[in-house]
């Protein structure tokens, strides 16, 4: 059997965090759950993760900054930005900084899983 993929979740809202953690667990992923930008960045850079799902508005460091720093060190890591921000400018900025996918909340859990799997080459 293939090694379980480790997914980083950066989400400060506990119920959304638990939701994603639960769903990814069901789908056979291992989850590294974090609830602020600083903690997320540390985990992203120091741990052997396979992909990251990152919220934008988070304490200490926002998701866009986290994305920027991840891109500087791990240009290939699949990153999904998952946020309530739906302005064209926000989307533009995130994609320009190298997000692989931009999803707005509320989102469909099945779609998130699909995007993640497709970025990991599992679809």
């Amino acid at each position: 059997m293939e090694k379980q993929k480790l997914i980083l979740i950066a989400e400060d809202d506990p119920s959304v965090n638990r939701l994603i953690t639960f769903k990814l667990g069901k789908e056979g992923f291992k989850v590294r759950s974090t609830s602020d930008g600083k903690e997320a960045l540390k985990a992203a850079l120091e741990e052997d993760i396979d992909a990251a799902i990152i919220d934008v508005m988070m304490p200490f460091l926002d998701g866009i900054q986290v994305l920027k720093r991840i891109r500087a060190e791990k240009p290939q890591l699949p990153v999904i930005i998952l946020t309530v921000k739906s302005r064209g400018e926000d989307i533009h900025k995130a994609l320009e900084l190298g997000a692989d996918q931009y999803m707005t909340k509320p989102f469909q859990t099945a779609e998130l899983v699909k995007s993640l799997k497709s970025l990991l080459g599992e679809l």
Binding site: V16, L19, V84, P106
Partner: peptide, 22 residues
């Protein structure tokens, strides 16, 4: 917008899970 959509995200997400039989 953030305050309104965060609870909706949870509601939709958990309903998704229930309906998917998760």
């Amino acid at each position: 917008s953030h305050e309104l959509k965060t609870p909706l995200t949870s509601m939709q997400g958990y309903l998704d899970l229930l309906l998917a039989g998760d």
